Deep mutational scan, measured.
Amino acid sequence: TFELKGKVGKVVKIAEDHYLVEVEGDKWIAYSDEKLSLGDRVMVVDVDGLKLKVKRIP
């Protein structure tokens, strides 16, 4: 999972307290300090167990 840091993915689902992002064909639970929208491109900035911390990228 640490090899996911720096990888780019996209938001595929928005849940009440987390996001579902697809990175390299796999779906992961993710969270972010900013509000994300469906389809946003994101970069993995940290890995916390099986959850990814992501940030939006242009």
Rank of each mutant, 00 (worst) to 15 (best):
D33F: 09
V42D: 00
V23E: 01
V8P: 10
L52N: 02
D40F: 07
F2R: 12
K53L: 13
K10N: 12
I29E: 14
E34F: 07
A15T: 08
S32V: 13
K13N: 10
I57R: 04
E34C: 10
E24F: 02
D40K: 04
L20N: 09
G9F: 02
R41E: 14
V54N: 00
E22Y: 11
V21S: 03
D26T: 06
V47Q: 05
V23K: 00
E22R: 05
K53G: 11
E22S: 05
D26G: 15
E24G: 04
K13I: 12
W28E: 02
V45Q: 05
V11G: 00
D48Y: 11
D33L: 05
K5F: 15
D40N: 05
G9W: 00
L4E: 15
T1K: 15
A15S: 10
V42Y: 01
V45I: 13
V42H: 01
K55I: 14
I14E: 08
K7P: 00
V8M: 08
A15G: 13
D40Y: 06
G25S: 10
V21N: 01
K27W: 10
K13C: 08
D40R: 03
V11C: 05
V23C: 04
T1P: 15
A30V: 03
K7L: 04
V47L: 06
V45A: 07
V23L: 04
L50K: 06
Y19C: 07
I14Q: 13
L38Y: 09
D17T: 07
F2V: 15
K55W: 06
D17Y: 09
D40P: 01
D26Y: 12
V23T: 01
I29Q: 13
L52M: 03
G49S: 10
R41F: 09
Y19G: 09
I29N: 11
K55T: 09
E16D: 07
D33R: 06
K53W: 09
E24I: 03
L4G: 03
K51M: 12
V21K: 00
L4D: 15
L38S: 05
E16C: 07
G25H: 08
P58Y: 04
D46S: 03
D33Y: 08
W28N: 02
A15Q: 11
I14N: 11
S32N: 08
V23I: 12
D26C: 06
K10M: 11
K27L: 11
V44K: 00
T1F: 15
L36G: 02
L50Y: 05
M43G: 04
I29M: 08
Y19P: 05
S32H: 13
G39V: 11
E3T: 00
D46F: 02
R56F: 14
V11R: 00
D33W: 07
I14L: 14
I57S: 10
K5I: 15
L4R: 01
I14D: 04
G25F: 13
Y19H: 10
L50N: 10
W28S: 02
L52E: 00
S32P: 11
I57L: 05
I57Y: 10
V23Y: 00
I57T: 14
K10L: 13
E22V: 06
